[in-house]
């Protein structure tokens, strides 16, 4: 019979007290087998909690499928999305064109797949940019007291800007200039990504600032300070790893907003050029044909909605999984 000390029991009791011995069997009635003797890591804990959120697992599966399809699909489905075959225009679903063709005879499946590449790329890059801004401003505002006031006023001012009209104006104004310098596709991509990134960092900054403010008062930061660790290293070693969870949650939400914003701009005719398919652009192009060919609107729209829905569910699950109060319940 192996002897294991009970959890929380001090190794040596007060002098003269009888040492209490707990058997492994007794512990096993309280703690299930798998929790004993297994090294429990943070990532493992998070994964265990994430797994229990059905919607999140389903969302992750759908999102990964979409990413997989969009990145490897064009290698299998090799029809050029911009290939014009005017004789087979406006076709319905067939073996040659599973989703049909558009008014110029371009294959819709190929267009949805390559459109997804652009939409997802815009979403991911814009999210990364907005996270970079948001966490930098949030950490600086939370950590350095002198910067807190000005930076947070700045954030509030940005929150009060009418974003959609401003985005429309920005895209309209700089499209020509950037296209001239970087080529039509590269220029509009950089413009879109930076415009969306620059107008969506505020929520992240606020959340990160709040967390950093609380972290700053904790003992381990005080300990690091007392041995003379420079601020830069305290931030990178101690603060940043601890605010990773809110940053990850706002990352998922950021992807969703970025994809919706890009599609909304494309939908209003102010996004990527017409020969450069994205989901929003495909939707915009198909609107005029809604009456006769509703399928053409539904596929790109469904792609956008499914992606955003799955990302939102992942975010929901991550929030639960990364919250230590909810985890392990």
């Amino acid at each position: 019979m192996t002897e294991v000390k009970a959890k929380g029991q001090k190794p040596s009791g007060p002098v003269g007290a009888k040492r209490r011995v707990v058997t492994r069997e007794q512990i096993l009635t309280v703690f299930p087998e798998q929790t004993l003797g297994v090294h429990r890591s943070f990532a493992g804990d998070v994964w265990a909690q994430f797994k229990s959120h059905k919607g999140a697992v389903f969302g992750a599966a759908v999102f990964l499928t979409i990413v997989f399809l969009v990145f490897f699909g064009p290698m299998i489905w090799t029809i050029d999305p911009t290939f014009v075959d005017i004789r087979s225009r406006n076709q319905g679903a067939s073996f040659a064109h599973p989703l049909g063709t558009d008014q110029l005879g371009r294959d819709l499946l190929a267009r949805v797949l390559s459109g997804g590449r652009v939409s997802l790329a815009v979403g991911l890059t814009a999210m990364a940019l907005s996270l970079l801004f948001g966490s930098t401003i949030g950490v600086i505002a939370g950590y350095f007291r002198r910067m807190d006031g000005p930076l947070m006023r700045f954030t509030d001012l940005f929150l009060a800007l009418p974003l959609l009209p401003l985005l429309l104006v920005i895209v309209m104004l700089f499209r020509e200039k950037l296209s001239g310098v970087l080529g039509p596709e590269g220029g509009i991509f950089i413009l879109m990504v930076s415009a969306i990134g620059l107008t969506s960092w505020m929520q992240t900054a606020r959340i990160v600032r709040g967390d950093v403010l609380a972290l700053k008062e904790r003992e381990f930061v005080l300990a690091a300070k007392s041995i003379g660790t420079p601020s830069r290293r305290i931030i990178t070693r101690h603060v940043l790893p601890n605010v990773l969870s809110p940053i990850m949650v706002s990352a998922t939400l950021g992807i969703a907003t970025a994809i919706i914003t890009e599609s909304a701009l494309s939908f209003l005719g102010l996004g990527f050029p017409p020969d450069f398919p994205t989901w929003g652009r495909l939707l915009f192009d198909a609107i005029d044909y809604t009456r006769d060919y509703p399928g053409r609107v539904i596929w790109p729209g469904l792609a956008i909605s499914l992606t955003v829905l799955s990302v939102n569910y992942i975010g929901d699950g991550l929030r639960d999984a990364l919250d230590p109060r909810l985890r392990g319940r």
């Binding site: 969703a256 809604t290 009456r291 509703p294 539904i298 729209g301 909605s305 955003v308 829905l309």
Partner: peptide, 22 residues
């Protein structure tokens, strides 16, 4: 409400048009 968050108005709008007018 998850669907309401995720389906952008330019798609839900087109969907109801397809459903109720076409």
């Amino acid at each position: 409400s998850m669907v309401g968050f995720s389906v952008p108005p330019f798609f839900s709008g087109v969907l109801v048009i397809i459903l109720f007018s076409i």
